[in-house]
Design a protein around this nucleic acid. Structure first.
Lengths: 136, 136
DNA sequence: GTACATTTGTGCGTATGTATG
DNA sequence: TCATACATACGCACAAATGTA
């Protein structure tokens, strides 16, 4: 699979697709480092901006983390603990606010689950840590 | 609030924080346009990359939409229809894959809810369109 | 501690394409 | 037609963070 600069699909999207495929197929295992920006630039014959936008896209999808001066890493698939949704409760999923992201120390591309209790209380969970259940 | 290039916090994160604050406080109302890239570049004394990355971050957080050739706009808070979580079902929230984003025509920064039926079937919802409920 | 290589962050110049008014 | 604004893409340079020798 190679990148076609003349395609109507942007180069950075093609590169992100390529890397995403490698992540989902396990070629790039969880915890392993992506090739550096310089390597990706050389090996795929694209500009650094395309590389950075591709990685940024994967970050926003929750697939990778980037550490300045170090590299980008395939995110580990988290263990989710089960949380029971109480009778009469409701829940929405959304992206966290800036304050929430900082206080809950959430990575980019991690949604939150906002659970509203029938009594009016609300609780916010990091979506990558919980699985909501309704018992049979 | 101003931007400090010498801070350990990246300039684009500082700018995103600043704009997010204006959105969440209502200074930038839902539906209103953000200043153009050129204006943000001038007024905050930062480079184009920083402006574009800041707006990209806000897009990935679901706060703004960008219309090519027109500008970036504060996203309206969506109406959610209620969906009942069946007995024995479970649900997780995550960011959509590239294919899901395309096929479901999801905006950036919109998570999905993946509902697993006790019989094994799974259904995926755009998280900005639904509120899951468990009846009392 | 110093020095160095590696990697990402930032800024800027340039160019072309696309969408809107 | 024209101006404006964003999207994509390439290049270069230097700053800042990290890790290692």
């Amino acid at each position: 699979m190679t990148i076609d600069p003349r395609s109507h699909t942007p180069v950075y999207v093609q590169l992100a697709d390529l890397l995403r495929e490698q992540i989902e197929s396990g070629v790039l295992a969880a915890g392993s480092a992506l090739p550096s920006e310089a390597r990706l630039t050389q090996e795929h014959g694209v500009g650094r901006e395309a590389v950075r936008m591709a990685i940024s896209l994967l970050r926003s999808e929750g697939l990778v983390n980037t550490v300045r001066g170090h590299g980008s890493y395939v995110r580990e698939t988290p263990d989710r603990r089960q949380v029971e949704l109480a009778p009469g409760a409701s829940v929405i999923a959304r992206m966290p606010s800036g304050g929430e992201r900082r206080s809950m120390q959430l990575n980019e591309g991690v949604p939150v689950l906002e659970v509203r209790d029938p009594k009016g209380g609300t609780e916010v969970f990091a979506a990558d840590e919980v699985e909501l259940t309704r018992p049979a």
